[in-house]
Simulated assay, not measured.
Amino acid sequence: MNAETVHTIFRALPLDEQKRLYTLIQKDLNINPKKRLPKTKIQIISDEEARSYLLTKIFKVKLKKS
């Protein structure tokens, strides 16, 4: 059986059967594998660093270095 024959049979099926066959083929071929994104560690800053950032970047206050 070749692909053209299968395609002709597929087109002759009712729409719900076409969807079912498509999902079965998709599972067999693993067409759309779910990709997992690597988890990135969230950098936690201290209260002092947060205050310093807000004062210098948002409120434009120059801080004295201690």
Rank of each mutant, 00 (worst) to 15 (best):
N32F: 12
T56S: 11
K65R: 13
A50N: 05
R20F: 06
E49S: 02
K65G: 01
K64V: 11
F10D: 00
T8C: 09
K62C: 02
N32K: 09
I25E: 09
A12Y: 05
R51C: 06
I45R: 08
L37F: 15
K19D: 09
D28S: 03
T8A: 08
L63F: 03
N32S: 12
R20I: 02
L63Y: 07
L13H: 03
I45T: 10
R11P: 00
P38T: 12
T40L: 11
L24V: 08
P38D: 14
I44W: 01
R20H: 06
N30S: 04
E4C: 05
K27D: 15
T56D: 01
L29W: 12
S66L: 14
I58F: 10
E49K: 07
D16N: 07
P38A: 13
T5L: 14
I31R: 00
I9E: 11
K64D: 12
T40A: 10
I44R: 08
Q43C: 02
T56A: 04
A3P: 01
E4I: 09
E4F: 11
I42P: 06
R20M: 09
Y53Q: 09
I9N: 03
I31A: 00
T40C: 01
I42E: 15
L15D: 12
N30W: 00
K19Q: 13
S46F: 03
S52A: 06
A50T: 07
K64G: 01
K35I: 08
Q18N: 04
A3C: 10
L63T: 05
I44F: 06
P33C: 03
N2Q: 08
H7D: 07
E48F: 07
P14E: 15
Q18R: 15
L21P: 00
K19W: 06
E48G: 01
K34A: 06
K19R: 13
F59W: 15
K35C: 00
N30G: 02
K39A: 10
D16P: 02
Y22S: 09
Q26S: 10
L29K: 11
N30Y: 00
L54A: 12
K60I: 04
L13W: 05
I58C: 07
V6I: 15
R20W: 02
K34H: 09
K62Y: 03
K65N: 14
K62Q: 15
I31W: 00
K34T: 14
K62E: 15
T40Y: 12
E48W: 04
S46W: 04
I25D: 01
L24H: 05
